[in-house]
């Protein structure tokens, strides 16, 4: 029983989604991207949990919530190696990896101060410029930027 308790760092979930392998320092960004503060269902957030792969990791369990691909892929901007487990009746029924979306709407701030998106009340749009180099391009000012350097809105 004891070993079992240690292994289970957070309690099990009946139905919902477990987002695992979030780098600890990216946890709260992921929380914001998924708009978790506005959710009304039971949410467990694990921070600085032990991880063999990452050292420390973050983990989010959301009861009775199943994310769409679009919602999930937004996470890829800050944490590209996250794994999503869909849970039904305490069983993992699906494991999903996140993919970088082709179009990123309303999450990333354009680093160009002369870009219209930084000066007008409007939504930013980025398109993936190069998956290999990890660069995205502003749909409006056409400037490219590295994903590692982005600021979220």
């Amino acid at each position: 029983m004891n070993t079992n308790k240690e292994a289970l760092q957070v309690s099990a979930l009946c139905n919902g989604t477990v987002i695992d392998h979030i780098p600890a320092d990216k946890l709260f960004e992921v929380v914001n991207i998924l708009d978790i503060p506005s959710m009304t269902t039971n949410v467990t957030i694990g921070y600085n949990l032990k991880s063999r792969k990452l050292g420390t990791k973050g983990l989010i369990k959301v009861a009775d919530k199943f994310f769409t691909d679009e919602e999930v892929n937004r996470i890829s901007l800050v944490a590209p190696n996250v794994v999503l487990n869909t849970i039904r009746d305490y069983q993992v029924v699906e494991k999903r990896e996140v993919k970088m979306p082709e179009k990123i709407t309303g999450i990333v701030k354009c680093p160009n101060p002369k870009c219209v998106t930084n000066n007008e009340p409007m939504t930013t749009i980025f398109e993936v410029a190069s998956k290999e180099n990890g660069t995205i391009k502003c749909h409006y000012c056409e400037k490219e930027t590295s994903i590692e350097k982005i600021t979220l809105l």
């Binding site: 160009n112 002369k114 870009c115 219209v116 998106t117 000066n119 007008e120 409007m122 502003c138 749909h139 409006y140 000012c141 056409e142 400037k143």
Partner: peptide, 10 residues
């Protein structure tokens, strides 16, 4: 003509 980049696209 506008001084902001992307203004015409918008």
């Amino acid at each position: 003509r506008h001084h902001l980049e992307g203004a015409a696209r918008y």
